[in-house]
């Protein structure tokens, strides 16, 4: 069994203009998926990233610069990461196909975790 990271991307303004009802309905789909996936051992959980811009720290000539990430200008931003157990990449792809993220957003990037 290998571990895969599902990187769930979405448009930066995806959730900012939604009514509360629609947002709740979408989030419930994710919850529903998670409860099933946690029970069956498919998903180990993950991390949710806060909405809005983060900071980028760079090293430059021995010093550091810090600036805000261009959150709003990006076409897609990372919303969260889920860790999924699957025998191989093909199985991980099948799991992704059933994820509600692909109903409410466009794509999931799958990366295998090294050494797992």
């Amino acid at each position: 069994m290998s571990k895969f990271a599902f990187l769930l991307n979405h448009a930066p303004d995806r959730y900012s203009s939604l009514s509360e009802d629609s947002a709740m309905a979408i989030f419930k789909d994710y919850m529903e998926w998670m409860q099933g996936a946690a029970k069956s051992g498919v998903c180990d959980g993950g991390y949710k990233l806060s909405e809005g811009p983060g900071k980028i720290v760079s090293s430059k000539g021995g010093g550091f610069t810090v600036h805000e990430s261009p959150f709003a200008e990006l076409t897609e931003v990372l919303g969260g990461i889920m860790v999924v157990n699957a025998p191989d990449f093909d199985a991980a792809i099948e799991i992704a196909k059933a994820h509600p993220h692909l109903v409410h957003n466009q794509s999931i990037e799958i990366r295998q975790l090294d050494g797992e």
Partner: peptide
């Protein structure tokens, strides 16, 4: 309460 519920349903699928 609504704000908290939204936040919860956004975070719980990831963190349980």
């Amino acid at each position: 309460a609504q704000e908290a519920m939204l936040k919860a349903l956004g975070v719980w699928p990831f963190e349980g």
